[in-house]
Computed example of a mutant assay.
Amino acid sequence: MAGIKEVAARAGVSVATVSRVLNDSPRVSEQARAKVSAAVEALRYRPNAVARSLRTEATHTLGLIVGDIVNPFFAVLARAVEDEARRAGYTVVIGNADERPERQDHYVRTLLEQRVDGLLICPTAEVTPLIRDCVAAGGPLVFLDRTLPGLDVPSVRVDGTAAIGELIRHLHGLGHRRIAFISGPEPLSTGRERTRAYADAMRATGLRIREEYLEAGDFQAESGRAIAGRFLDLPEPPEVIFAGDNLMALGALDEIRARGLRIPDDVALASFDDVGWFVHVDPPITAIAQPAEELGRRAVRALLERAEGRPVDPVVLPARLVKRRSCGETGRTQR
């Protein structure tokens, strides 16, 4: 049976071009696609992924492990990774770690057994022995959205520090002084970074950081609801509840509405992580938007450069503040 090299030779193109055609990549000219298709038909070539892997030690697949696929941020991120990988001639296999280290390790093992050409991981908080082994092996690995301390791994992430500072200044300008924060888990790099940015911004604006106004959630809606309830039960409740991600903001929104309170008249609401449905809430929710699509594209490019043995520098993208009416702003809703 003819192999991919014979197809490439008959079509007068490279093996990489044949691979892109077989993987339906758009990065191929119509002329080259027609030549490859004619050669495939003439030679009666039938690609076999397993056999191709054994011959070339490449499967043209990438592994992506996300923290929680239910989170809209990770869903958008995964779509962007898949689209960019497809353009480069790769298929993506996705695993949902559900923020559990043991489940993350399960997917790492499974993907390595399937001989993926590289791994993109949004790591959980724990540095597991398996992750250390992957780093030590030096294979194509890139951390996405989050980092792990003590590990020399290229990362592609978002820095929300400036946007959080802008948000606190914006709230201060609207007359708010009592600003509570539902932070993410301290063990996660994103949880620590957002908490530090909130504290730094409060101090820089001359606002008091009150212990009772700062509590860590788990990036899930139920924790946002429970913590918002405790904030609202305080003798002096906050004027603003700032949630550290979109799911905790959803939980906080549910609790505020369950109590019959009005946003922003009784309490204002802001979120880190902008999602599509925020513009459909009345009033629309002020949020810090992460460039999830660009994050996914850049991560795939970094991983492929890593797979080719090229050095990869860390990529840090800025977040941006989207002002809407949930904090008392007036004016046209921004998308």
Results as ranks from 00 to 15, higher is better:
Thr124Ile: 03
Ala125Arg: 05
Ala125His: 05
Ala125Tyr: 02
Glu126Leu: 09
Glu126Tyr: 04
Val127Thr: 06
Val127Glu: 01
Thr128Gln: 07
Pro129Arg: 10
Leu130Met: 13
Ile131Glu: 01
Ile131Arg: 10
Asp133Val: 12
Asp133Glu: 15
Ala136Ser: 12
Ala136Glu: 15
Ala137Leu: 13
Ala137Arg: 15
Gly138Arg: 10
Gly138Trp: 06
Gly139Ala: 14
Gly139Trp: 08
Pro140Gln: 06
Pro140Ala: 11
Pro140Asn: 06
Val142Phe: 05
Val142His: 01
Phe143Ala: 02
Phe143Tyr: 06
Phe143Leu: 06
Leu144Phe: 07
Asp145Met: 08
Arg146Val: 08
Arg146Gly: 03
Arg146Trp: 05
Leu148Asn: 04
Leu148Val: 09
Pro149Val: 04
Pro149Cys: 00
Gly150Cys: 05
Leu151Asn: 11
Leu151Val: 13
Leu151Ala: 11
Asp152Thr: 11
Asp152Val: 13
Asp152Glu: 15
Val153Gln: 01
Ser155Asp: 09
Ser155Trp: 06
Val156Ser: 09
Arg157Phe: 05
Arg157Ser: 09
Val158Glu: 04
Asp159Tyr: 01
Asp159Cys: 10
Gly160Ser: 15
Gly160Leu: 10
Gly160Thr: 11
Gly160Trp: 04
Gly160Pro: 07
Gly160Tyr: 04
Thr161Ser: 05
Thr161Tyr: 00
Thr161Asn: 00
Ala162Lys: 14
Ala163Gln: 04
Ala163Val: 05
Ile164Val: 15
Gly165Asn: 05
Glu166His: 14
Glu166Phe: 12
Glu166Val: 13
Leu167Phe: 03
Arg169Gln: 13
Arg169Ala: 14
His170Trp: 11
His172Tyr: 13
His172Pro: 05
His172Phe: 14
Gly173Lys: 11
Leu174His: 01
Leu174Gly: 01
Gly175Asn: 06
His176Leu: 14
Arg177Thr: 14
Arg177Phe: 03
Arg177Gly: 08
Arg177Trp: 07
Arg177Asn: 11
Arg178His: 00
Arg178Ala: 04
Arg178Asn: 00
Arg178Ile: 07
Ala180Cys: 10
Phe181Gly: 01
Phe181Pro: 00
Phe181Ala: 00
Gly184Met: 02
Gly184His: 03
Gly184Asp: 03
Gly184Pro: 06
Pro185Glu: 10
Pro185Val: 06
Pro185Ala: 09
Glu186Lys: 12
Glu186Trp: 12
Pro187Gln: 10
Leu188Pro: 03
Leu188Ala: 08
Ser189Val: 02
Thr190Lys: 02
Gly191Ile: 03
Arg192Phe: 02
Arg192Met: 08
Arg192Asp: 06
Glu193Asn: 13
Glu193Leu: 14
Glu193Ala: 12
Arg194Thr: 04
Arg194Phe: 02
Arg194Trp: 04
Thr195Met: 09
Thr195His: 02
Thr195Pro: 04
Ala197Gly: 05
